[in-house]
Simulated scan of single mutants.
Amino acid sequence: MSPFMSKAIIDFAIALGVVIGGSLLAGIASVIALQSPIDTMRQVSEHLKIWAIVAAVGGTIDPLRVIETNFWVGNLYPVFKQLMFILVSFLGAHMGTELIQWICRARG
């Protein structure tokens, strides 16, 4: 498998894991704090989405620096790669959020 695909799969899994893990742990903590775990998990999953993307791509400064320096010199392949890593990380975080929302949906 190519290094690009390997990193993309890992970034997807990291973003997915950050959202799901953080939301589940927040749900456990809300039970201990005598609050509604469903409401807490829904809110946390939404708020963790951006941080999951940041964690997956390895911070905010380095990917942006790669995009900036390569874009201005006309080397668009590294720019495309970084944008794809960000997109794949977003998809992982979004899938985690949707999964948590689905788990917490109202029974009726």
Rank of each mutant, 00 (worst) to 15 (best):
Val73Ile: 15
Ala8Val: 01
Thr60Glu: 09
Glu46Tyr: 10
Phe80Ala: 13
Ala52Ile: 02
Val66His: 08
Arg107Thr: 15
Leu48Cys: 00
Phe12Tyr: 10
Gln82His: 01
Ile32Pro: 12
Met95Ser: 07
Ser36Gln: 08
Gly59Lys: 08
Pro37Gly: 11
Ala56Trp: 03
Gly17Glu: 07
Leu24Ser: 08
Asn75Thr: 10
Arg105Cys: 11
Glu98Ser: 09
Ala52Phe: 01
Arg105Val: 15
Ala13Asn: 09
Trp72Asp: 12
Gln101Arg: 14
Gly58Pro: 06
Leu99Lys: 01
Ala56Glu: 04
Ser36Phe: 06
Phe80Gly: 06
Met41Thr: 06
Phe80Pro: 00
Tyr77Gly: 02
Met84Arg: 00
Gly74Lys: 11
Leu24Val: 15
Ala15Met: 01
Phe80Trp: 09
Gln82Thr: 13
Lys49Thr: 02
Ile53Gly: 03
Gly108Tyr: 12
Val88Ala: 04
Asp11Ile: 02
Ala26Cys: 05
Asn75Ile: 14
Gly21Leu: 02
Arg42Ile: 14
Met1Thr: 14
Ser36Leu: 02
Ile20Lys: 03
Phe12Ala: 05
Ser23Ala: 15
Ala106Glu: 15
Ile86Val: 08
Val66Ile: 14
Val19Ala: 06
Ile9Pro: 00
Lys49His: 05
Thr69Gln: 14
His47Gly: 10
Leu83Lys: 01
Val19Lys: 02
Pro3Lys: 10
Gly22Pro: 02
Ser45Met: 10
Gln82Met: 04
Gly27Pro: 11
Ile100Thr: 09
Ala15Asp: 01
Gln43Asn: 11
Gly22Thr: 01
Gly92Cys: 03
Ser45Tyr: 04
Phe12Ile: 04
Trp72Tyr: 12
Met1Ser: 13
Leu16Asp: 00
Ile38Tyr: 12
Gln82Leu: 00
Thr60His: 07
Ala15Arg: 00
Leu99Trp: 07
Ser23Cys: 06
Ala8Gly: 07
Gly27Arg: 04
Ala26Lys: 03
Met1Leu: 09
Phe80Thr: 10
Ala8Gln: 04
Ile50Val: 11
Glu98Leu: 15
Ile10Lys: 14
Ser30Cys: 04
Val18Asp: 03
Gly108Met: 11
Thr40Val: 11
Gly96Cys: 05
Asn75Leu: 12
His94Tyr: 11
Ile103Glu: 13
Cys104Ala: 15
Ile61Asp: 13
Ile61Cys: 12
Pro78Asp: 09
Ala33Val: 09
Gly22Cys: 03
Phe90Cys: 03
Ile9Tyr: 05
Gly92Asn: 02
Phe71Glu: 05
Asp11Lys: 04
Gly108Val: 15
Ile10Arg: 11
Met95Gln: 05
Leu16Gln: 02
Arg42Asn: 13
Ala8Thr: 06
Gln82Cys: 07
Ile67Arg: 04
Gly92Lys: 06
Ile50Ala: 14
Ile28Phe: 13
Trp51Phe: 09
Ser30Met: 06
Ile38Phe: 15
Gly27Leu: 06
Ala8Leu: 09
Ser30Pro: 05
